[in-house]
Simulated assay, not measured.
Amino acid sequence: MAETHRERCAELSAPWQENAQQAPEDHATLLQLRVRPFTPGASQGLVFPGKSLFSFVRRVYRCCQEGLNCRSVKGIQGRLRGDKDVEFLLTREILALTVIRAELHLQLSNPQHLDIHPVLSSMAKRDLPTRYSLWSRGNTVELRVDLLFLFQSLQEVAGGARGGPSLVNMRRVVFSSRGGRAGEKPAPGALQDTDGDVWGDGVASVLELGLVLGCSQAGSGVSCRTGGVHLSHTPFMALYYR
Rank of each mutant, 00 (worst) to 15 (best):
Q17A: 14
E18K: 13
D26R: 14
D26A: 13
T29H: 01
L30Y: 04
R34N: 04
V35E: 03
T39A: 13
T39I: 15
S43Q: 12
G45P: 03
V47A: 02
S52F: 02
F54L: 11
S55T: 05
R58D: 14
R58Q: 15
L68I: 10
S72L: 13
K74F: 07
I76H: 04
R79M: 09
E87Q: 12
R92S: 10
R92Q: 12
L95G: 00
L97A: 04
I100R: 11
E103N: 09
Q107M: 09
L108T: 01
L108H: 09
Q112S: 13
Q112M: 14
D115C: 06
H117C: 00
L120N: 01
R126N: 12
P129D: 06
T130A: 03
Y132C: 05
Y132A: 04
G138E: 04
L143C: 01
R144V: 07
F149D: 01
L150D: 02
F151G: 02
F151I: 01
L154M: 08
G159N: 09
P165L: 12
P165W: 13
L167C: 09
M170P: 02
G179P: 01
A182Q: 11
K185S: 02
A187K: 00
P188Y: 08
L191I: 09
T194R: 13
D197A: 14
W199C: 02
D201L: 13
G202M: 07
E208D: 14
G210P: 03
S216R: 06
G219W: 04
S223T: 02
L231M: 06
S232K: 07
A238M: 07
